[in-house]
């Protein structure tokens, strides 16, 4: 795998790597993709119908509001202020 591809995947993943980590990631990913490439030897096509034809809408739960957790409990693991999550400023 090329360095540019690893950088592109890291960007998609919102991960940053040092130069040394990038070198290691290229080596690891090359080895891993080589293992994944074994599936190129088999001719098989995914048939979405097989997976989806037996999903019955009647089995889904009703679309109705249910009690949820209190706001203070949900904010307890976050930096919060005035019942809101705090994020860096995103508008001028």
């Amino acid at each position: 795998m090329e360095m540019d591809m690893v950088k592109y995947l890291a960007k998609l993943a919102k991960l940053s790597f040092t130069d040394e980590e990038l070198e290691k990631a290229v080596a690891d990913m090359t080895d891993i993709i080589d293992l994944m490439d074994t599936i190129k030897d088999i001719d098989v096509v995914y048939d979405a119908y097989k997976d989806n034809h037996n999903v019955y809408l009647a089995d889904l739960r009703k679309d109705e509001a249910m009690p949820s957790l209190p706001t203070e409990k949900l904010l307890a693991n976050a930096v919060n202020q005035e019942n809101c999550f705090v994020v860096p400023k995103v508008v001028e």
Partner: peptide, 20 residues
């Protein structure tokens, strides 16, 4: 920064592979 500091090497590898 939060993701890069929080996740370990193996988790990062799996995320890269999944994105690929």
């Amino acid at each position: 920064a939060s993701r890069s500091e929080g996740f370990g090497d193996e988790v990062k590898r799996r995320i890269l592979l999944g994105n690929y």
